[in-house]
Each structure stands twice: as structure tokens, then as C-alpha cells.
């Protein structure tokens, strides 16, 4: 088992290198001058050249890539052009906030998605199934920034129950586990949970229906298991795939929450990416993308390991 885990982690290293190469190239392929946001419009050619050398933009791309990746391995992702702060620090503060938001959203989505999925799978083609399917299709189809704004209008503007934006009182970006901070989490987490909920519900419904149609369900009944006893077997059969889908959804939410974080001004990676793009802050942009991509890879490794412990048919050789 330990060998299997080690092997999975080793496999991840070349993937991460490839990911780093792709995100570096993409950022540099995009047109535009990265120095435009810090240079005054009337800057002299002398000053431009000086800054270009300072940030290393005068060197060849392969040279830039290798010096970036070598420093990245030691945890140094460079300095943000716009704020002159360490990219590593900026990214990890944002990652922490996004991780909190995405984890809550995935947990809510997984809970309700599994609930709807099991109910729909067990009561297939009944009214309950149609209702659960309707809710999950809505979850996938509704634009979430729109849903976010609707929730803000109802619960923040009209009812005044919850704050509309930010991650803490007074616009603070430092998270704490108290109600003053937690209440800022409610609306964005619910908005964000709607997509994983829909996808997990659809997946679980199909898995449950498929499992219930298997011969071994009759076998389990024939050996005298009650409905609840059979249900436990169904859960263990459904769990590996459901967990894999949940892990992938968490991965998407870690990087793909630009719209929601912008609507709620949540100081996470999506918000950071948004501002890095608009300010053409290349070191910040490529650092953020790299960290998110590595998270995604590691999450996949984790899901692989979890799955193989739950489903003996996934080989550990």
C-alpha cells in the first residue's frame, strides 16, 4: 500500500513539470507588455530597459523558464509587479481563503448531491426522482454569478441577515473560525455548492440505479439482509466513483471560482487571478496558476489512493 502511494506521488512529478511548462508558456504567449501597469506613460526608454532587466524579461524564454522553475522548487515564485510583494505569500493567503470556501461548498454539494442522488436512484421514475433530477439539472444550468447576486439581493439587501461581500468584518482578508467570519462564508459557499451538488446527484443516481440492477443485490436479499443491510452494500459500491467525482469537483472549484469570488469580493485565488490578469502581473499570474494546477494534480493522487482503498478491484500492483 505504501509502495502504491509512493508510486502515485512519483508519477505526479513529471505531470507537475509539464503543467509548469504549459502555464509558463501560456502566460508568455499572451500579447501585451507586463510592465505597462508600473511604468508611467511617459517613461524613458532607459527606464524601461532598466526595469526589464530588473524583472528578467530581457532574457530568452527558456532561460526565464528555468530560473523561474528552479526558484519555484525552493518555494520562491518571484515578486508581484503590481504590489511588489512576494508572490508565494500572496498566493498562499488566497489559496487558504479559497480552500475554505471550496471545501465548504464541496461538502454542502456532496451532502445534498448524495442525498438527492440516493433518493432518485432508489425511487426511480417516481415523482421524488423527477423533483430531485429537476433540482440537480437546475444546479448545473443556472449561471452561478446570477444565483450569487439573487442570494445577495434576498438575504443581504432585503432581509439583511448576512453580509454581501468580503471574508470578514471590515473587509479583512485574514480568516478566523468565529461567527463574525463564518457568516461571510454562507452565501458564497451555497452559491458555489450548486454545481457540485448537481453533478454529484446525477452521478450518484446513475450509480445507485446501476448497482440496484446488479445480480448481487438479489444475492444479498437471498441471504436474508434487510433493506438497510442491502443499502450499506449499495453505499460501498457507489462510494469510490462518487468520491472521485467529488475530488475532481473540489479541484475545479479551487481554480474555477473567479466569477463567484468576484461577485462576493472573496479574497481567494479567483479574485487574485482576476486582478493579476487585469494588471498584467505576470509573476503573480503564473505563480497562481502553477499552485492551482499542482493542487489539482495532488488532489487526483489523493482520490486515486482513496478509491483504491475502497474498491479492491482497482489494482495496487
Amino acid at each position: 500500500m505504501i509502495l502504491f502511494i509512493l508510486r502515485r506521488i512519483l508519477y505526479a512529478i513529471p505531470i507537475m513539470f509539464g503543467v509548469a511548462l504549459v502555464c509558463f508558456s501560456l502566460v508568455h504567449l499572451a500579447p501585451g507588455d507586463p510592465l505597462v501597469s508600473v511604468l508611467p506613460p511617459d517613461a524613458s526608454a532607459e527606464l524601461q530597459k532598466q526595469l526589464r532587466t530588473l524583472y528578467g524579461f530581457d532574457r530568452s524564454l527558456p532561460e526565464q523558464f528555468f530560473s523561474w522553475i528552479l526558484r519555484a522548487v525552493t518555494g520562491d515564485l518571484g515578486t508581484s509587479i503590481a504590489s511588489s510583494r512576494s508572490v508565494t505569500e500572496e498566493v498562499f493567503r488566497a489559496v487558504k481563503n479559497t480552500l475554505i470556501l471550496a471545501s465548504f461548498a464541496t461538502l454542502i454539494g456532496f451532502f445534498f448531491g448524495s442525498l438527492f442522488g440516493f433518493v432518485a436512484g432508489y425511487f426511480r421514475d417516481t415523482f421524488v426522482d423527477k423533483l430531485a433530477s429537476f433540482i440537480s439539472v437546475m444546479g448545473v444550468s443556472v449561471p452561478h454569478y446570477w444565483l450569487g447576486m439573487v442570494l445577495v439581493i434576498i438575504f443581504a439587501a432585503q432581509l439583511n441577515w448576512l453580509p454581501a461581500t468580503g471574508a470578514g468584518p471590515g473587509g479583512s482578508a485574514d480568516w478566523a473560525w468565529d461567527w463574525a467570519h463564518m457568516r461571510h462564508l454562507v452565501l458564497p459557499a451555497i452559491t458555489m455548492s450548486v454545481i457540485p451538488m448537481g453533478i454529484i446527484a446525477r452521478t450518484v443516481r446513475a450509480l445507485v440505479a446501476d448497482t440496484l440492477a446488479q445480480e448481487f443485490i438479489i444475492g444479498l436479499r437471498a441471504m436474508g439482509l434487510t433493506d438497510f443491510g442491502v443499502f450499506r452494500h449499495v453505499v460501498k459500491n457507489v462510494a469510490p466513483t462518487a468520491l472521485a467525482v467529488m475530488g475532481l469537483q473540489l479541484g475545479y472549484l479551487l481554480g474555477g471560482s473567479i466569477l463567484i469570488e468576484t461577485v462576493f469580493s472573496w479574497p481567494g485565488t479567483g479574485f487574485l487571478l482576476n486582478s493579476a490578469i487585469f494588471q498584467r502581473d505576470l509573476p503573480l499570474l503564473q505563480g497562481t496558476i502553477l499552485v492551482l494546477a499542482i493542487f489539482f494534480v495532488l488532489l487526483n493522487v489523493l482520490v486515486d489512493i482513496l478509491q483504491s482503498t475502497l474498491d479492491p478491484r482497482i489494482t495496487r500492483q
Partner: peptide, 20 residues
């Protein structure tokens, strides 16, 4: 079921739960 009267199936690969 199982206590008084039990059953064996044609294809045990399908009739046994694969994850237990």
C-alpha cells in the same frame, strides 16, 4: 431467507458483492 432456505446462483462473480 438464508436461515431456513438459501440459494446458490448461476454466476457467483455477479451474485457476490464485488467490494466486500
Amino acid at each position: 431467507r438464508g436461515e431456513v432456505c438459501s440459494m446458490i446462483f448461476q454466476e457467483p462473480l455477479l451474485a457476490l458483492d464485488p467490494v466486500y
